[in-house]
């Protein structure tokens, strides 16, 4: 990959390119704030959670089963199970991260989430050399996340959209749209099909968590990687 840099320009570029993601994630953040209010968390506690955890699905899952006093183990375990997929994401950015040290590696990972990770992978694969992109795009999402969950907590149940309301589709639409840029041609067809089937079955068998994402991604990637590896191996 050659030289990797970490500049203000990269930070700004990441922030700018992440704006559409920010808009699409607002409903999710508002709902998280509403759930925190419903679970009996104070405004300060809600802000503390959104800043330090910064993971929508994990916060929603933990809040849906919140007790007073809370179960530390249950909340931590919910966060771990839902966020395990993030452990698969970091290594993909190794071409950038391997060439950096200290906070330039570990701070951007703190703000790494699905959307800005996908944008960063796209930027990196297109030849981008500025690893500050990940931090810039992540900080944009953190600002949105804090504001949206604050709004949700303050307005409480006043504007709670029912489950299945199309505003929630915006978050899924981001993932669908990002898939277009991830398509690398015919060699992706079989791995993607396997991922889809495994994920759909796993979602039914192990609901509540991110097991379907991990199992689908691992199954599809292993098949794709093994096939490619065998094709490249000297006969």
């Amino acid at each position: 990959m050659g030289e990797v840099v970490f500049t203000r320009a990269g930070l700004r570029r990441g922030a700018r390119e992440c704006l559409p993601m920010m808009v699409a994630s607002i409903p999710f953040g508002v709902v998280t704030g509403i759930s925190a209010h419903g679970a009996g968390l104070s405004f300060a506690e809600t802000m503390f959670m959104s800043i330090t955890v910064f993971a929508g699905s994990a916060q929603l899952l933990a809040l849906s089963a919140w007790t007073h006093p809370p179960s530390v183990l249950a909340a931590s375990l919910a966060a771990f199970v839902v966020n395990l997929r993030l452990a698969l994401m970091g290594p993909v950015l190794a071409p950038w991260l391997d060439r950096l040290r200290g906070w330039r590696v570990w701070l951007p990972l703190f703000v790494m989430t699905d959307q800005n990770w996908a944008l960063s992978v796209r930027n990196m694969n297109a030849g981008g050399k500025d690893a500050a992109f990940l931090l810039g795009s992540g900080l944009t999402l953190v600002c949105m996340w804090i504001s949206a969950s604050a709004l949700g907590h303050v307005v409480g149940t006043m504007l709670q959209p029912p489950p299945g309301h199309p505003v929630f589709f915006a978050a899924l639409a981001v993932f669908v749209a990002l898939l277009v840029g991830m398509w690398r041609g015919k060699r992706d067809l079989l791995p993607w099909a396997i991922a889809a089937v495994v994920a759909a079955i796993a979602a039914r068998m192990f609901p509540g968590g991110s097991w379907h994402i991990i199992l689908g991604a691992l199954a599809g990637s292993l098949v794709g990687g093994l096939r490619e590896h065998r094709a490249n191996a000297p006969a």
Binding site: L179, A195, G216, S221
Partner: peptide, 8 residues
Amino acid sequence: FIPGTLFV
């Protein structure tokens, strides 16, 4: 293959 399969 992770990015594509993960989002799928």
